[in-house]
Design a protein around this nucleic acid. Sequence first.
DNA 1: TAATAAAGTTAGATTAACCTAACAAATATA
DNA 2: TATATTTGTTAGGTTAATCTAACTTTATTA
Lengths: 222, 222
Amino acid sequence: MLSYTEENYLKALLKLSFQNEDRPEAGTNEMAAYLGVKPATATDMLKKLKEKDLVTYKKYGKILLTDIGRKNGIAILRKHRLWETFLYEKLDFSWDEVHEVAEQLEHIQSAKLVDKLEEFLNFPEFDPHGDPIPKANGDMPAIAKTLLAELNAGQNCKVAAVKDTSTLFLRYLEKLKITIGTKIKVLEVIAFDGSLNIQIENEEPRSVSMKFAESLFINQLP
Amino acid sequence: MLSYTEENYLKALLKLSFQNEDRPEAGTNEMAAYLGVKPATATDMLKKLKEKDLVTYKKYGKILLTDIGRKNGIAILRKHRLWETFLYEKLDFSWDEVHEVAEQLEHIQSAKLVDKLEEFLNFPEFDPHGDPIPKANGDMPAIAKTLLAELNAGQNCKVAAVKDTSTLFLRYLEKLKITIGTKIKVLEVIAFDGSLNIQIENEEPRSVSMKFAESLFINQLP
DNA sequence: TAATAAAGTTAGATTAACCTAACAAATATA
DNA sequence: TATATTTGTTAGGTTAATCTAACTTTATTA
């Protein structure tokens, strides 16, 4: 049985490994920063996780999840995303409110609860932020990894997921009436500052910054 | 903010105060036994709770909840019973499975979550065991406190709640097709051993033990 | 009421998760 | 490549919640 804290370390490592697709390992400071603890604390915990065969760890080396560690991390991510979906769909929580509560709910221990919750929600594939929900066996739908910023003028796409899940960004999206699935057409790319002119569904064209375009994952449309 | 453990002590004290209607206070050993810790541990924690003004406590004296302590305890009970209702009604958990998971869920911190959950469940008054669910303001429907064992031959009643929530008892009730609201008629009281002959709804009459009759709270019917 | 039993407390340890401060290794840069 | 910077580790300490063992107070009973 893993402690609340151990679970958080595994989840952090998993998230960091997604963030750098080609580099699935992380460093001590990186993990500490992500978890809001001091590096010394992370060192201690990583040694402990190594003892439990959940991560590979060597002094001054990079950290990787073992297969068991990965399996556990994915189970937590699954719970997190199912709870987010529940909060959003059944309890009318907004996009930016779900995360904080799901951080707590993801640590509830009950295999039956997770599976029943999934069934109750009708086996959703994606959470409210568009991130894929792992199945009970650990399978996970492919992650969209094209950013809006990578498109050229004239191309069409559908919003697949948010890269930035900060409240500020999510509120801004709400204001622009952008949710998962919203269609966007790129009208023009401004070379000067990387900003885009886009058309959201059939609304009036508007401009968004490069920072904005780098925060949205999309699926291209023909 | 209360710790997980502090919350459990408050809830325990509240539960013990319900168990002895006329004696709302508890002793150190009693609490320790209830919580599964050693008396020395309970002593330490009670001192801490006293510092926080959640209980009244004096060396070698009985323990009582303060108003603040009671308020907090009721908030936890509210969460516990709402989650039990959710598990039972929405996720198809059985009578005897809900408690364990609700023990974990009751510690999730989010006022919005509790209130939204209550709304989602349609403001239930009683949990799956028939126990009253406190409202957001702390109000609580009256508790049925007549036992089936107190009735005489010829009297009718409706099952209001279970006094014993052990798996063994709940499973037995299921077998007898007794749930909250089931009508029972007392046909005969056997003076020898306190057992009863009863009719459950319109089933064949059957005998139940005194122990059984002392484990069910009922509301009398005319 | 004196002896015994039950209930409750204290002191001193332990464990998990955290910290600070000082140090060591690895990496980047002048 | 020597030095500076970044990254990571170690040692020693803190806090919350637990324990055991010894002790004290209160309650029961012979």
